[in-house]
Amino acid sequence: MIEIADEEFSIEEMVQRARRIDAGAVVSFLGTVRDDGIRGMEVEAYREAALEELERIRDEAMESFDLISVDVVHRVGHLSVGDPIVLIVCAAGHRQAAFEGCEYVLEELKRRAPIWKKEISDGGERWV
């Protein structure tokens, strides 16, 4: 599953979906809005292009790291400190592949997907 979501997602459901008898490892990464002197953030995406790029990243990770499954959900809209932003769940036969695949998906998502974040603080706003 690759999704750009307007609402909060279920971590438990995504992890459960990744569990299979041939998966010896299910690794997840949850990114949240951290208290870095901000009140919140606005997250925007060019939805169609972001979904296409996330699918390409998923396919690359599955092939490169011998993953069984890769699920990614990224939030958009107004988020408060502590809210989840992104969840990546990778399943593989072995833990090293799952960890490496998950890290690859995260780094490529940050580098390539047309998703933007604007931090909102008492001092103003800034795109990051």
Rank of each mutant, 00 (worst) to 15 (best):
M1N: 12
E53H: 11
L67V: 02
G124F: 13
E13G: 04
D6Q: 11
E119Y: 04
V128E: 08
E108G: 08
I85V: 12
G31A: 11
M14R: 05
R58C: 01
M41L: 14
V128L: 09
V105S: 10
V27S: 10
D22M: 14
I57W: 01
I2G: 04
E12I: 07
A25E: 10
E7C: 04
V76P: 00
V73Q: 13
K118I: 02
A92E: 02
G77E: 00
V27A: 14
Q96N: 14
S80Q: 07
R126T: 06
I68M: 09
E100G: 15
Y46D: 03
A91S: 15
L51D: 03
E108V: 15
G37Y: 06
F99I: 15
L67M: 10
I11D: 01
R126Y: 08
H94K: 15
A23W: 07
S80G: 02
Q96V: 14
E42T: 04
M41G: 00
Q16N: 15
L30D: 01
M41N: 00
Y46E: 08
G101D: 06
H78M: 05
V33M: 06
A98L: 13
A91N: 06
V15F: 10
W127P: 03
V89M: 02
R34L: 05
P84Q: 00
K117S: 03
A97P: 14
H74M: 03
E53D: 10
D36V: 02
T32S: 08
E63S: 11
L30T: 07
I2Q: 05
R47K: 12
E55R: 12
C90R: 05
I11W: 04
V70E: 11
W127I: 09
R20Q: 13
E103V: 12
D122H: 12
E48S: 14
E44K: 09
C102E: 07
K110V: 14
V27L: 11
L54M: 12
D6A: 14
R56P: 02
E12D: 15
C90M: 09
R39Y: 02
P114D: 02
A91V: 10
V70W: 07
R112P: 00
E108I: 14
S28R: 11
R126I: 10
S10T: 12
L51Y: 06
S69L: 05
S28M: 07
M1T: 12
R95L: 15
E125N: 04
A97M: 10
A61Y: 01
M62N: 01
T32V: 14
H94R: 14
R39E: 03
P114E: 01
